[in-house]
Amino acid sequence: MRLSKKSWALIKIIIFLLSLSPFFLLVSATIQDQLGANPIQTLHFSLGDWALRFVCIGLALTPLKKLLKQSWPVRFRRMLGLFAFFYASLHFLVYIVLDLSLSWEAFVDEVPKSPYILVGLFTFLLLTPLALTSTKAMQKRLGKRWIQLHKLVYLAAISAVIHYLWLVKSDLGEPLLYATVLFILLSSRLFLHLKTKDYFEQALTELRK
């Protein structure tokens, strides 16, 4: 797609606002007391859902690029990836600040007994360095290692789905839906990777452009 710099900037702003809209809707629902009988859970679950959705969207961009043979999808990769981290951070904060009321006693009591929370914390731990090294400067500084580091997102996506699967009581429908989407996204990457042998070299030249 050949668009002017201005048009791309505008599209970026629109996507930015769209990505932020779930956050504003949740804030407004919280203020208006419209989160239902268990507001903390509603907040916590919605934020977790959005984090996982953005992880999936972020992972869809490279396959999309290759499928369309166009480079524009990766223009949004950093922003959408950071939105995944934004919602994951809020999800984590709601748990620590609201659900546990910042009580260390509650944390050490609950977390070891809850494997799904451990997996959730692990996921958050994996995402954090990715967010911290998301700048262009870091990308350049780390070079090849940056790409290797950012492959952690595959692991993070898988552990996020396990986190969800492990939480539900019996209705696995929704977490399995995410698992399916993730499977398709990751296997499409593998497929495309095998198709283009020197994947790393390509990615590096892309970076140097």
Partner: peptide
């Protein structure tokens, strides 16, 4: 006695404000 996947030592009170501890 914890549920194998979560603790049972605390409970969220329905209808309480978001700043009410469990």
């Amino acid at each position: 006695v914890a549920h194998p996947r979560w603790s049972q030592s605390r409970e969220r009170i329905l209808g309480a404000s978001i700043f009410t501890p469990k």
